[in-house]
Design a protein around this nucleic acid. Structure first.
Lengths: 338, 338
DNA sequence: ATTAGCAGTCTAACCCTTCGAGTGCTAACA
DNA sequence: TGTTAGCACTCGAAGGGTTAGACTGCTAAT
């Protein structure tokens, strides 16, 4: 448990680093945040926080920067409120006062608002849940491969080819087919983006077919991403405003990452938080891209459509502001989407 | 008219600069491209080409780089054939051997192929021509504004608000409405992306309403872009592979540009070249973004859908390769799309 | 018309120094 | 025991100066 003073100092470092992108020195903390002890005392505390893993010293004659652990602690316990500025509110007003007719319009507006206010790349993921699976068929292509056909309500079929596992005769394949249908029919295609197969498969009676099922579910995942999911981003150029992307390499990495829509979708849709609560992923340990954080919230977009909105940006992100903006937009969406 | 030797030298400079991104020296040309005269002679020729506007010398002790004029001349007259490498062919094979079902699949594959082979950002624009305009209505909102409602076959209506011009009474507005209907009904929404109003309007009998019509057409343009047009890009991160974007500023400019889908659509769809012929825009004078070139070709995607595919990248682009790839893909598409 | 040779120019790279910011440690102090 | 002043030390960023070398333009000879 951290002492009150340590918490205060840690918060000062994180806040300061978020706004300046520079290592924070003991003097700076004393002058700007706490006046009741000397910089030497703060140095001692900083040193302690560093050995606890919360702070990092880029080099010996520099101040401290927060570790990912510190950011995690910050968003969970230290972060205080952010008040939307009149400028922020004006941006929201501007977009929502435009004529908005379709769901597309809404989402485009939301993306632009979020990106403009926060200066991060905004992401909208839309999951169309209306397309239900009506049947799964396995077709032996008699060259050692199996054609998996997934039939759905709306579009006739989606398919993929997988290897037939060793020692699978016709009868076992039929059984497998039966089992697959039992498991999947009636479900929405987009439910499989984040399907965690280890559990389900470990308990199935077809453990020798694990590899096959895994592949089939991969086909489902692919299909669900390509058909049931719509990923849009806006404000990729905003990353250049942040000093962590001032070198070309990290910028390139970020952009490559952003073009992998599948990955993006997963980051924004999994561990489904409830509407109204904001999920924050910090760094690779949270399955965000290296050096990046993902802040998102789930939204409902009508009968059979749900989704996520959020931003992706450097770990040194203005979480307060982002969370507040997402909350606000989320509230507004509830009013707008009937 | 340029002498044969000047053409040869100019071609050498352009080819050399395209592949090295470095100013080309007289010595280099002599060694690599022509052995039948000395570097001093080439220096004289280079000097002449510079004063003709084809070459630029970054500083006095550097070689020459081609001007945009030179690139224009190169693509029109000098450029020789490019042979697809086996690696290129392999990439095409890889993507087209995947199961491709929908038009979406095709276009995604095409985008990836083009970007992977060329290392530039690829763009696909799809214009859905099935949505025809059935009527245009003007509604006086009696606050000095006019609601323009565009009714189409498919989706009920699209609208926008414009100011009523000075001195427009009810009767003239009715006339204007009539004229608008005569002009637009039966046309496809997406025809207006590149509608050039100056000509049409200059010859209309409503010259005093030019501003109004202009706005209405802007609404149509906006509508057609938002509804009838689909712009997708892939490989934005590829720009970092090219030295002109090794500084953060130009990279940012490029990305901002790429996020303006409207502009992109216009660059790829206008002055409608025929399928099978590749259009090359070089630099701002050709309405490409500053420092950029746009290479595109029109394709047919079925009954009521047409579009463009192409790349956008630095003016120092490997035009040979890009043109060849686009030609190839264009041919393949003709086979695939029925 | 072409070419060898040479003086002149400019960049890129490297090294060196300096400046200042910030720390850790020590010893004194409450 | 916790806090603080003082100081030596470290390290990076910035600036200046030098050097090496890449090319050119010009001149004069062929």
């Amino acid at each position: 448990m951290l002492s009150e003073r340590k918490r205060k100092i840690l918060c000062a470092v994180v806040d300061g680093y978020i706004s300046s992108a520079q290592p924070i020195s003991s003097k700076e903390i004393q002058q700007q945040y706490m006046l009741d002890c000397s910089s030497a005392t703060i140095r001692n505390e900083l040193s302690a926080l560093e050995s606890m893993g919360y702070l990092i010293q880029p080099h010996v004659s520099a101040g401290r920067i927060p570790s990912e652990l510190a950011f995690r602690f910050y968003v969970d316990q230290l972060m205080n409120e952010y008040q939307l500025t009149s400028h922020d509110v004006e941006i929201i007003r501007k977009y929502f006062s435009q004529r908005i007719v379709t769901l597309e319009d809404v989402m485009t507006a939301v993306m632009h608002i979020i990106s403009e206010i926060t200066d991060y790349t905004s992401v909208v993921v839309k999951e169309d849940m209306s397309d239900k699976i009506t049947a799964i068929k396995l077709l032996d292509l008699s060259n050692g491969k199996l054609l998996v056909v997934i039939v759905t309500d709306a579009r006739l079929l989606k398919d993929g080819v997988v290897e037939i596992p060793e020692g699978a005769d016709e009868r076992t394949l039929q059984q497998a087919e039966k089992w697959l249908n039992k498991l999947f029919v009636g479900k929405h295609v987009s439910e499989f983006v984040n399907f965690n197969y280890t559990y389900t498969l470990a308990n199935s009676q077809f453990s020798q077919f694990n590899a096959l099922f895994k592949k089939i579910i991969d086909v489902l995942k692919k299909v669900s991403l390509e058909n049931g999911l719509d990923v849009e981003t806006y404000g990729q150029h905003k990353i250049f405003q942040h000093s962590e992307y001032s070198d070309v390499h990290s910028a390139q990495r970020f952009l490559s990452e952003m073009e992998q829509k599948v990955k993006i979708a997963q980051m924004f849709t999994n561990d489904g938080g409830q509407q109204g609560s904001v999920t924050i992923k910090i760094g690779e340990s949270d399955n965000a891209p290296a050096g990046c954080s993902v802040v998102s919230t789930r939204i409902s977009l009508g009968e059979n459509v749900s989704g996520s909105i959020g931003v992706i940006g450097p770990v040194r992100m203005n979480y307060k502001k982002v969370v507040t903006v997402l909350d606000k937009i989320s509230d507004l969406l509830i009013d707008i989407i009937k």
